[in-house]
Nucleic acid binder design. Structure first.
Lengths: 231, 231
DNA sequence: GCAAAAGTGTTCTCGTTACACCCATGC
DNA sequence: GCATGGGTGTAACGAGAACACTTTTGC
């Protein structure tokens, strides 16, 4: 391994990344956590995380563990913030870059998740996590609320084909308040970014709800010109 | 020094923080940069930065160098994002946590600034900076624009007593577009967060403009209950 | 036929925008 | 007295909020 050592007299630190993995299922926002496998605190619930290796960026590290735990590639991932208090980790001085990931629960590889001792919890049943991970979760929820007001990140939590009532229920979960279905639908469709399909999803009602897809290409164009999504 | 070494087999990394230091003067947004003093790239323009030491948080490190360069305590500082591409630093593998700082130019200690070879540049005259620092600046500008829509961070760039035309001119600089003065004033005052003083600032006009202060206590209360500042 | 969720329009309110003139003062 | 920047009000418009009933279909 090449070692340039230009900045010789400087201290190096342990750098970790922890992922707040959001999912959405049955009208509830969920979080993926797992049982920690390294000392100290072995066996306690923890966010999914890893140390950052010499040859990878922080994003690389996060993607690596997300694939490991969920089997999914191309997950939506965004930086939340850095946790660097000197005494935040009982094990050793270590900073952690928290990132949140949004994944489509119906896609994830159940087997992998279970093999790693991971588990989905809904927010109100979330157990006590190790270190400052509960703070990270709280900050992440705040973060996606703010972000959701400007970008259609909610869609990352739904299958490619989704219904409008599904989407509404998701936003109700994110904002923790009921939304008027007529107004929601009106505003949503006014963007002209949803493509109505000829299929219906009949799993939640007898009548069935039409499925839609999101026109990402069209959105990209709007985004460039400073367009803000959503309420 | 205590060394717990719990996470033994892990790699450690160099961790730096770079500060995008904004000021506002003469209707122009400005940036404080300085001539780099360590190899490689000695003598090139660089953001103000430092490595993070073992016994300090990232914020501590930033505050340390801000005091050093400006002599100012209690500077507004907020994390921007982490730059961690493997090859981003020619010197050695090193991640940097970029933070933006907002300071009141009229307060800063000119002597200290000059002693460190630092200099204020306005945006359009900003030179090429080392490494990925120009990217950081661009991201920071985007960041304060978004933030300014929700929080009164602009005030951190003005003296404690300021006039409404000053504030307007600041927001025009941040958003890079002219604002209507009647509408600006109306909305601003509608929050009931400005306290009109009996003094006028006569430096910019013969008539003089009334000075105001911001009611931070009242704002704190509103902020708690989910209040959003500004356009 | 009835329960349960999907889908549909209109009105009202309030905030945003557009717009032009007088005021105070130093020179 | 005039040039310069500070300060003021109103009307038109559009987006957001409030609000209730019909449709479809499985059972």
């Amino acid at each position: 391994m090449e070692e340039k050592k230009t900045y010789t007299k400087q201290h190096t630190l342990l750098v970790a990344t922890d992922c707040i993995v959001f999912g959405f299922d049955q009208g509830l926002l969920k979080l993926l956590v797992f049982k920690r496998r390294i000392a100290p605190l072995v066996g306690n619930w923890s966010l999914i995380g890893s140390f950052v290796n010499k040859d990878e960026s922080v994003t690389d590290a996060a993607m690596r563990i997300l694939v490991q735990f969920t089997g999914l590639q191309d997950i939506f991932l965004e930086e939340l913030k850095v946790y660097s208090k000197v005494d935040r980790d009982y094990g050793d001085r270590c900073i952690s870059i928290a990132q949140y990931a949004l994944i489509r629960i119906d896609d994830y590889n159940e087997e992998l998740v279970e093999k790693h001792g991971a588990k989905w919890f809904s927010f109100d049943e979330l157990p006590r996590l190790v270190l400052d991970h509960n703070d990270m979760v709280a900050d992440a929820l705040e973060g996606i609320r703010i972000k959701a007001r400007r970008r259609p990140i909610g869609l990352e939590l739904l299958p490619e084909k989704f219904t409008i009532p599904q989407l509404q229920s998701l936003y109700e979960a994110i904002y923790q308040r009921p939304l008027d279905n007529r107004n929601f639908r009106k505003k949503l469709l006014s963007f002209g970014l949803l493509v109505k399909l000829d299929e219906k999803d009949k799993t939640t009602s007898k009548k069935g709800a039409f499925l839609y897809t999101f026109d990402y290409d069209k959105y990209k164009v709007l985004e460039e010109s400073g367009f803000d999504f959503f309420l």
